[in-house]
Write a protein that binds this DNA or RNA. Structure first.
Lengths: 160, 160
DNA sequence: ATCGATGCAAAGCGTTTGCAGGGGT
DNA sequence: ACCCCTGCAAACGCTTTGCATCGAT
């Protein structure tokens, strides 16, 4: 969206290796989808990725975008974000972190939490005993914040 | 599913009033959908509600079930549960609580947390300062646990 | 009596699939 | 050379909608 020279990592070797380890191939489409995902702070929908990546690969199809995103999830380079309304969004981060969902726009952003603040670990530790009584084994803890952004430039009305 | 005399509340006056306050009417279909929702600990999908409620109201349609569930959400008597795979599930609880998602089956159950353990409030308090820096106003905090139930009768393999 | 809710069928949306041809290994 | 991936179109599952009739207020 901003400019055309968006290389996120020193190289895309990381992606290449992740795909390879999962038995998947490295293709221009997958690279472009991944690069775009990493280049935006919003967590785009498949449709948004499609429109953006078409500037780099004009002949790419929406189906391929879906398949690429699925491949990224499969090789551990992306995760899905779902909410009660609107299509699935995709996130290039796979570590535990917190999402802020704007309930008005559907927009999702990451909350930056200082590393010395291990919220997910604390929470999981607090809950382990309770869930064990339910015969449940935790593999992931998700924290999602619903609300709205009201800083300058985010609301719908700026002047009164 | 278990037996036919499933009255959850002393009366369904609560539901009647909630619908009324939202400008919605009290109908046999809405009552049946709500009663069924309350009678099961799993959080059923619209399809599951449909099949169950047909025993009480054989002529009900799936579209009406969806509309009833939407009406329950609108009047504050139910919430939606979404996950990255599978259809939306419905929950008759509207207070903050924690869901355990079985990643193998899609099943969702509530985690029982002692009332003297205000997890959501603690968490929200911890996060308020961080989100304010992002220009975000929290209206809801959701905690979802992913994992699997492995108690007797849930796992796939019991003997080694 | 009024106006919203139901039931049916058909459409809608986001996503997945089948297949012939192209590209990565 | 092999087999996976792409691109196209068609199918898919879940959910919503349009409309005539029914029923709650």
């Amino acid at each position: 969206m901003k400019n055309s020279s968006m290389k996120m990592r020193p190289e895309n070797t990381e992606l290449r290796e992740a795909l390879s380890e999962a038995g998947l191939r490295y293709t221009a489409q997958r690279e472009a989808v991944y690069d775009y995902l990493c280049s935006v702070y919003t967590h785009p929908t498949a449709e948004e990725v499609y429109h953006a990546v078409r500037q780099r690969i004009p002949r790419i199809s929406l189906a391929t975008v879906y398949k690429c995103l699925e491949a990224l999830v499969a090789c551990g380079k992306a995760t899905k974000i779902t909410s009660s309304s609107g299509p699935t969004r995709y996130d290039p981060r796979t570590d535990r972190h917190i999402h802020m969902h704007d309930v008005r726009t559907g927009e999702v952003r990451d909350l930056h939490v200082p590393p010395e603040f291990p919220i997910h670990e604390q929470l999981q530790a607090q809950l382990e005993n309770l869930v064990r009584q339910s015969g449940f084994r935790i593999t992931d803890v998700r924290i999602e914040l619903m609300g709205y952004f009201d800083g300058p430039g985010h609301g719908s009305s700026s002047a009164s």
